[in-house]
Design a protein around this nucleic acid. Structure first.
Length: 170
DNA sequence: GCCAACGTTGGC
DNA sequence: GCCAACGTTGGC
């Protein structure tokens, strides 16, 4: 039993689907589909729950950066692209009666007033163990600890919900 | 564009 | 079950 909400980081290539794309989508909402990695699938299947909060991270970007906060608004359900032969993510080995790949829905909540670049994440001692800063870490959805969550939001200029406003300014 | 790191595939 | 080959990810 773990406390809620949990925190996550999801990666998206802005050339494919950016924070602005999410922000301008109906309901500021999207299906987070196309995941074809078992470890990521298992997180989605077992651990991602409605109300969990998500850092939206731009990978393959200049610079790569955490850019916004989103919320899980629908839990795991089958990703239809696996059954579409015309789709890049088609998986002919997946059984429609027991779909191999899942997706979930997220909705944008807050843009980070200041995007937190990967180099800024790496420069923050409190984030030394954060998965996204580890070399060779390719998981497209990663768990984030509450302490990491607060540190990233602080770097991004957002106060964590419920926290007293900070007076520190630079 | 380069290439290191990683996950998957498939021959054996 | 091993492991080399291959495709992908993603920082730089």
């Amino acid at each position: 039993m773990s406390s809620r909400p949990r925190y996550w980081l999801i990666k998206s290539e802005p050339a494919v689907f950016s924070w602005d794309d999410l922000w301008s989508a109906p309901g500021r909402r999207t299906h987070w589909d196309g995941i074809r990695n078992y470890q990521a699938r298992n997180f989605i299947r077992d651990d991602v729950k409605r109300g969990d909060l998500v850092l939206f991270y731009h990978s393959n970007a200049s610079p790569p950066a955490a850019v916004g906060v989103a919320e899980v608004v629908r839990e795991a359900y089958p990703d239809p692209t696996q059954f579409d032969p015309a789709d890049d993510h088609h998986d002919p080995g997946s059984d429609p009666a027991d779909p191999r790949w899942l997706m979930f829905d997220v909705a944008a909540r807050r843009r980070l007033p200041q995007p937190v670049s990967l180099s800024a994440l790496k420069a923050e001692p409190a984030l030394a163990a954060m998965l996204v800063v580890q070399r060779g870490q390719r998981l497209s959805i990663q768990p984030v600890t509450p302490a990491e969550w607060e540190a990233v939001l602080a770097l991004g200029g957002l106060e964590p919900a419920g926290a007293a406003p900070s007076k520190k300014r630079k």
